[in-house]
């Protein structure tokens, strides 16, 4: 996480370092950890106890923020397993970039009637990108996983732009 030496979110949650995990089980784990460790359930200790409880609760919440977002989860895992690979793999395929540009223009010029279909298309694209990241990481190919993760940013950007466009039209 942020500070050197602090445990990574997977460790904080006591779960395996992998991307293909059951998101529902992950959420249940978060609720259980919160029930066990939240300061409201552990009041009345001494100052040192309180500080430890507070630090642990903050760690759990901050880890959850990473783990619940599949892209953040992937970024942290890739960085943990192959430090530096995210920086090394920034060069993306020109063909991919041309496609991304085309998609961005479609979003920018989308009419009201086209929004639902486009939204559905982008969601499918995002899911496909996710499977690319997840499968590469699961196979231990972190260079490919890093590239796929960089590529996914273009889809995610397009999704955000589409919602902005929808609002502008409305």
């Amino acid at each position: 996480m942020n500070r050197d030496g602090a445990p990574d979110p997977f460790t904080v949650f006591g779960i395996e370092h992998r991307l293909d995990l059951d998101e529902r089980a992950l959420e249940r784990r978060y609720l259980q950890l919160s029930r066990d460790c939240h300061p409201d359930r552990n009041r009345g200790g001494g100052a040192a106890d309180c500080a430890a409880v507070l630090a642990r609760a903050a760690e759990i919440n901050d880890s959850w923020r990473v783990l619940k977002d599949r892209w953040e989860r992937a970024r942290v895992l890739i960085e943990l397993r192959a430090p530096g690979v995210l920086d090394d793999q920034k060069q993306l395929d020109p063909e991919f970039l041309a496609g991304a540009l085309e998609r961005a223009e479609m979003v920018a010029n989308a009419e009201s009637a086209e929004l639902p279909a486009l939204r559905q298309q982008l969601r499918a694209d995002a899911d496909a990108a996710w499977h690319g990241v997840r499968d590469a990481a699961t196979a231990g190919d972190f260079a490919t996983a890093a590239r796929r993760l960089h590529e996914s940013k273009y889809v995610r950007k397009a999704m955000a732009d589409l919602e902005a466009r929808a609002e502008a039209i409305a």
Partner: peptide
């Protein structure tokens, strides 16, 4: 909208 307690270091 960060859940509290929370912390961040930069």
């Amino acid at each position: 909208n960060s859940t509290i307690p929370t912390s961040a270091t930069e």
